[in-house]
Simulated scan of single mutants.
Amino acid sequence: MLVKSKIVELADWLFEEEIPDGYVPDKPLVENRISISKDPVHMENFQLSTSGLFILHSKMQFDRPVQVLTEIEGETITSQFIFFKPTDSKLPYGMSRHNIRYIPSVKSIHEVEPGIEYTYFIAVISKEYYLNLIKRDSLLHQQFVHEIEKGEYVSFSEEDLMATYEMQHTITELIESKKKGEIRRLHTESRVVELLMYQFEQYNEKTESSDLLFHEEDVQRLEMARQILEQRIANPPTQKELAAEVLTSESKLRKDFKEYFSVTIHDYLTRVRMEKAKSYLLEDKMTVYEVALLTGYGHQNNFSSAFKKYYGISPGELKM
């Protein structure tokens, strides 16, 4: 399969990668980091590739409106995410969209605007590789596989969905992994499967609750509320304060948050705190006391009790 992209207004390709289609389990990963700063584009690219798989994580800003051309040749399944926010925004992610697509071959052009910070993630997976990750007869994607067999371009979800915290966390784990060799390849493959599972799960939940309709303004408020919780876990606002920040009532925020994200505000904050805590303990090697402060528990004993209730083991046992 061939994956390449360029700014229509410029002569050179931003990147051009030719990847073998076949699934080769012991094929090593190749990592590449590219920085591009050439009027009108400023871009930081992280790329991972192996036989049957190409991953791109790109942070982009543009000095003027331009068109981005992307070409993919060969039968592929893509897991695509786009995050976008004003360059002066203090929120970590902004708005987002994601989907899974089957692409027999495609050329697409997207217009991008100045003053917007874009973060783009795509996993391009050959058909053979994909069907080794997710078995053909799995109920998770039965209809999707049926459409794939027709050989025509199709999206898993009719509408792009918004990325959840779990998806963002999985992407971050994948691109920031310090693992090497075979362990890195296995870790990458497991994160790709995890990301696809989160996408399948969200789509299925949306399908089951399709009678719940949210206006775009409500969705933006909910996304902002979610990001405020993620950004301020050390000192989170009360639900009343959070509702005031996103310009809605406390009761409406509680109700809509539960319906839209399928989790209460309290449980979501706990989930984010515990995921961050595990990362601080394992990846950053912080002390239990430091993690307690960073996750907003204040007292080490309160944090340790919450951690053991959530994971079933104490922070000290996790670090052993």
Rank of each mutant, 00 (worst) to 15 (best):
Q227C: 07
L222H: 10
V219P: 00
Y198N: 15
K206A: 15
E250R: 15
S249E: 11
T238G: 11
A234W: 10
E241T: 07
E245W: 01
D211N: 12
A234K: 12
Y203V: 02
L247I: 08
Q227R: 01
P236L: 07
P237E: 06
T248M: 14
V219M: 10
P236Q: 00
S210R: 06
E241D: 09
Q202Y: 06
E241R: 04
Q199T: 14
T238M: 06
L229Y: 01
D218V: 01
E205S: 11
D218P: 02
V219S: 02
E223F: 00
E205I: 11
S249I: 00
E223Q: 13
V219R: 07
E201K: 13
Q231Y: 00
E223N: 12
Q239D: 11
S251P: 04
E250K: 15
Q199W: 03
N235K: 12
S210E: 10
Y203K: 10
F214R: 03
E205H: 15
Y198C: 12
S209Q: 15
S251R: 04
F200C: 00
A234N: 08
L242V: 07
R221M: 09
K240L: 09
E223A: 08
L229E: 05
S209A: 15
T238S: 15
T248C: 13
L213W: 06
R232K: 10
L242F: 10
L212M: 08
R226T: 02
L242R: 09
M224I: 09
L222Q: 01
E241V: 00
L229Q: 06
L242M: 08
L253M: 10
N235A: 12
E250V: 00
N235T: 02
S209F: 13
T238Y: 02
A234P: 02
Q239N: 13
Q202A: 09
M224T: 13
L253V: 04
K252Q: 11
M224K: 14
S249V: 06
Q227T: 05
Q227V: 05
S249Q: 06
L196K: 02
A234Y: 12
A225Y: 09
F200K: 09
F214M: 03
A243G: 00
A234F: 08
L229P: 04
E245P: 01
A243L: 08
K206V: 14
A234D: 14
E241P: 04
N235P: 03
L229G: 12
L213D: 06
Y198E: 15
P236S: 03
P236N: 00
E208A: 11
L222F: 01
Q220C: 05
Q202L: 10
F200W: 11
Q220K: 14
Q231V: 01
L213M: 13
S249D: 07
Q220E: 07
M224S: 09
A244G: 04
I233V: 05
R221N: 08
H215W: 08
R221Q: 13
I233Y: 03
E230W: 05
M224E: 11
E241N: 02
I233H: 06
